[in-house]
Simulated assay, not measured.
Amino acid sequence: MTVAHARSVDDSRKATGADLDRGLSVQEARARLDHSGPNELPPPRRRGALVRVAGQVHHPLIYVLLGSALATGLLGGIVDASVILGVVVVNALIGFLQEGRAERALDALAAATRTKATAIRDGVATEVASTNLVIGDLVLLDEGDRVPADLRLVYTRELRIDESALTGESRPAAKDPLDLPAATEPADRTNMAHAGTLVTSGGGRGVVVATAADTEIGRVHHLVAVTGRWTRR
């Protein structure tokens, strides 16, 4: 399967069923939304504080350490038993805090993708919620806009986008619609505008090629969620 940045503008149009002049019809956009679901990241699975604490000690290794502490204490090794219990407590505290940070990070990523967007529908520039965007939508970008989905750019006008949330690069990236090799790294995909990034200057338009969890920020969201789950083990 050809990745979006490696497709030409015309191939992107064909692959997504986009209309680069009139955009999707309202009826077609609604049908696609019903099929694909909203363009939003899934909320994190939240657990209460007590459940989170219990989850940190629910592990075979922790049981072994607790058993060792008990046996050591019964044999009179109070200091050694205290050290073992201290290790268990510190480990549980670190896991508890990491899980909390992971949940907050997931909330921040989801918030970064919720915005208003200007899409061409039936030939008219229409403001829509980012959650209602679908594959093939033609989206307009202007200075100050939050990119609402992953877009294959089809036209740019001195467009620069702050992608630091995804790439860590502090300087806004210059964008253009030129074709790129398939092996191009995400930070160098100058013909793409990714969900959650910020237009700092210029403008352009692009075709939605990925939404929700299939976006680059969706992949980051998944990795953070997986990291959060590992802290529970």
Rank of each mutant, 00 (worst) to 15 (best):
A54D: 06
R157C: 11
G203Y: 01
L24G: 02
R46L: 15
V124F: 09
R30H: 11
L20I: 15
G73P: 00
A15L: 08
S8C: 09
G202P: 00
G203P: 00
E40N: 06
V3I: 07
A129I: 05
D179T: 15
T16Q: 05
L74V: 10
R7E: 11
R47N: 05
M1P: 07
A49P: 13
L166F: 06
P186H: 04
R45H: 11
R32N: 03
K14C: 05
P172C: 12
L159D: 03
A213F: 08
H221D: 15
P177N: 13
A117C: 13
P181W: 11
V64F: 08
I62W: 00
L74A: 08
A129C: 11
R146I: 13
A119W: 06
R13C: 11
D11A: 15
G196S: 13
L133E: 07
L133M: 12
S201N: 10
S68N: 01
V90W: 07
G204M: 03
A182Y: 10
R32I: 07
V147C: 08
R146K: 13
V128G: 06
G228Y: 08
T118N: 09
A18T: 03
T16S: 12
T211N: 02
T2A: 14
A183K: 14
L85V: 12
A129N: 13
R13Y: 03
L41P: 03
K14R: 15
R7W: 01
L159W: 03
R219T: 13
T215F: 01
I217A: 01
S201D: 14
R114I: 12
H58D: 15
P181M: 10
R160H: 13
E216N: 05
A15I: 04
D176P: 03
T227V: 14
P44H: 05
V89R: 05
D122K: 08
S82N: 04
A119T: 10
V83N: 01
G206A: 06
T231K: 02
A225N: 14
V139H: 04
L159K: 02
L166Q: 01
E158D: 14
N132K: 11
A117P: 08
E185W: 04
G86P: 09
G17D: 12
S8E: 09
L74S: 02
